[in-house]
Write a protein that binds this DNA or RNA. Structure first.
Lengths: 194, 194
DNA sequence: TAGCATACATACAGAATGTATGTAAAGAGG
DNA sequence: CCTCTTTACATACATTCTGTATGTATGCTA
């Protein structure tokens, strides 16, 4: 049973990433040992350190894949919003749906900032999720004075989304979180308030 | 040179907490080894494990002391606000001032959630800083429909403050962050808008 | 002042990380 | 098709860390 090298690499890397994801979610990054990861993946530590520089690099791969999956999940939700406001609210709900997948809050919101640092962790979202938020918020604020503060407002709103996702995961009422987000958004809208 | 036992304990614990704080800030919790901590504190690992159950407990003590210091710093700023809105804005600025002390963002916003868990990390602020925010926001929203969502809104605003503190630490323009916070608060105010 | 509890220091066991080295299979070149 | 090189690992090793167990001196209490 012989496979091409590139295929072997792909399989081994993915097995490691998936096994690591399971254990990182279950016990957290710090409490997960590489011997356990490789055992779960059915390889040896040699394979791990051949494909990844160190344990952090493996975590980075897990987090990157997870962030990409979040983006994909969000985009999958057909965005049939008539107004910019609805686009933001639907986007928020799509984000909460995506973040409810087991382990995502722990991986992306708790462990990633500590393991990868604030800057790199922010970069995970920045590629897709946060740039979409920025675009949506830009549409929403077009023509208002708030538009000048688009960048910091995007960050603040993104942080609020993250906190809401954590609160929902912690058992808080999702409808209340969404309503609170809606209030914040409506407040920023100025002219467009109902 | 003999000291009372309670005094010895107090000194040793504080020496450990201060040394640990320095190293945790410098290298992060995970990269800081207990042998380095005790060397910096001038004691042995026996003393550390006598006074603290484990490394996490030492970190908890550091984080608790830091959270208390943040609260104290905030309260120290004489709050001479005439309106509820000003109270919130002054509070935000006081929070940013407090969080600019070297290492506080790393300790409280990056490491604490990963080391202590989301719930316990949230509990650090909950005692003072966040309950003050809740009170201020309660005053501000009194009589508006938003008052019903006081609890989730407090969480969202708290998250926004944290993100702003991180952004300021990362070199973003502080005035812009404060202006963005002001916009969010004004938006929530409804009736009270200028 | 005799016994006990406290506050450590030292020694040890287990385990984890990263590296160095060895090997078999895949791929490239002539 | 045969050789050489590179890739993809497996194994063994060195270092270091955490938590615990044990020993000891000093403060404290009856």
């Amino acid at each position: 049973m012989s496979r091409s090298n590139s295929e072997r690499t792909r399989m081994t890397r993915q097995a490691l990433i998936e096994a690591a994801r399971r254990l990182f979610v279950e016990k957290g990054y710090a409490e997960t040992a590489t011997p356990d990861i490789v055992a779960a993946a059915g390889v040896t530590r040699g394979a791990l350190y051949h494909h990844f520089e160190d344990k952090r690099a493996l975590f980075r791969a897990v987090a990157e894949q997870e962030a990409a999956a979040v983006s994909a999940d969000i985009e999958r939700q057909a965005m049939t919003a008539r107004t910019a406001r609805d686009a933001l609210l639907f986007g928020a709900r799509a984000y909460f749906d995506a973040m409810q997948v087991e382990g995502r809050t722990r991986l992306l919101l708790l462990d990633a900032p500590a393991v990868l640092g604030a800057a790199e962790a922010a970069g995970l979202d920045a590629r897709e999720a946060e740039s979409a938020l920025r675009a949506g918020l830009g549409d929403y604020l077009r023509g208002t004075e708030a538009e000048a503060l688009l960048t910091p407002l995007t960050g603040l709103l993104s942080a609020a989304f993250d906190r809401a996702a954590l609160a929902i995961e912690a058992g808080e009422d999702r409808a209340a979180q969404e309503a609170a987000i809606a209030l914040v958004i409506d407040g920023l809208g100025g002219e467009f308030r109902r």
